[in-house]
Design a protein around this nucleic acid. Structure first.
Lengths: 204, 204
DNA sequence: CCTCCATAGACCAATCCGGTCAATTTCTAT
DNA sequence: ATAGAAATTGACCGGATTGGTCTATGGAGG
């Protein structure tokens, strides 16, 4: 890719990246016209091809950017150093919300790219995933102290249930297409409080 | 549409409908080639156009079929007459599983069509939705007896959380693209048992 | 052998798509 | 002000795709 891209005013870079996320998250790789990306970004197709030699390069750049930004945001949010599961979760959500304010479709793009099956890019994506994948894992579970929770609770089930719920919530808004980040933050605060009220052992 | 379609052997009708669900659930209306539908159904494009005069008609037929089948399945499953929330839920899931065995992508198609924004079909879809929408509603909540549940439980939150979780679960599999219905039935059985163990007031 | 009719393949015109290029505008340094 | 470099664009191209049509084929029934 053309390194001059990074000399562009930040706002313009962001507009282009966002347009890419949006278009590629709505359609499969093959059915996402570069043209549309340019239009949404408010620039000409030629200019886009000036910064990225071809569609594939643009796509892979978006993916790499997406991965980098997510990891960076999570890392510096400090959510990994948290002791309490719900604190971890909440801080993670806040971090994600902060990204989504700048790049609303980043999350959707990530998932779509992760499951992309087009042979033109699929291999590269998977290879790149491999590099990062060691981290996250569900290390959280290891640190859980059963004494904190109501007796007999199936901790793994609880965790999976919470993940699904989160995905379901985000997906619902993604379909509608007009995710309101403030609203999301509030909803998640309530959701997490709900979980605490249900899963945590009552004090006393 | 050409009524002769209904004289086709059931298995062939089903194959065509399934191909339609699959293609239209993967891409937006505009980017779903009729060609692909025909191929996936194992027939020629010409034949498809023989039964449905144009793309729009095919699409709208699929939507109508999808809505009819879903409502019919839910109605005759008897899940609406259930008293217990979790029984209702479980029977509903079983009913949905039965549909998904015949039409794996029906659910995905439904959501995609519901949120479709293409002006060529969007209006008709919404009009059709209006006809059915009176039903479902969240009538379930009205029949809930708080005494059944653990004290202080936010019933509405619980219900929404369960919905999100369900959506999240289905979505995750949808992305992977290889939903195993048996597996789903088992997972949901476990999920519902988990909810019961957490939300229901302990006997005694 | 004739008649339907399900079915397919070739075809068509329009559009779309990735990508290029020459031209024009804008910025910068003198 | 002006030359030159860089940013940016609109026009363009060849090939693929798409919705849809038309004609041909092949088999079942009489």
């Amino acid at each position: 890719m053309n390194e001059k891209f990074f000399s562009l005013p930040a706002e313009k870079q962001q507009r282009i990246i966002n347009a890419g996320f949006r278009v590629f998250s709505k359609n499969s790789y093959r059915k996402s016209p570069v043209n549309e990306v340019a239009q949404e970004a408010g620039i000409s197709k030629s200019l886009l091809f000036h910064y990225f030699h071809n569609k594939k390069e643009l796509y892979l750049f978006l993916w790499e950017t997406c991965a980098q930004m997510t990891m960076e945001a999570l890392r510096k949010s400090g959510c990994y150093e948290q002791k309490d599961l719900f604190d971890t979760l909440y801080i993670g959500v806040l971090a994600k919300a902060r990204i989504m304010r700048q790049y609303p479709e980043l999350g959707l793009f990530a998932v779509k790219a992760y499951y992309e099956k087009d042979p033109e890019v699929c291999l590269e994506i998977q290879r790149s995933v491999g590099k990062y994948t060691n981290f996250q894992a569900n290390t959280e579970l290891l640190n859980l102290d059963p004494a904190q929770f109501i007796p007999g609770l199936d901790l793994e089930m609880m965790y999976r249930e919470m993940c699904w719920s989160t995905e379901g919530y985000l997906w619902e808004w993604a379909q509608r297409g007009n995710l309101d980040v403030d609203r999301m933050e509030r909803d998640f605060r309530k959701l997490i409080d709900f979980w605490k009220s249900v899963y945590l052992r009552k004090e006393g």
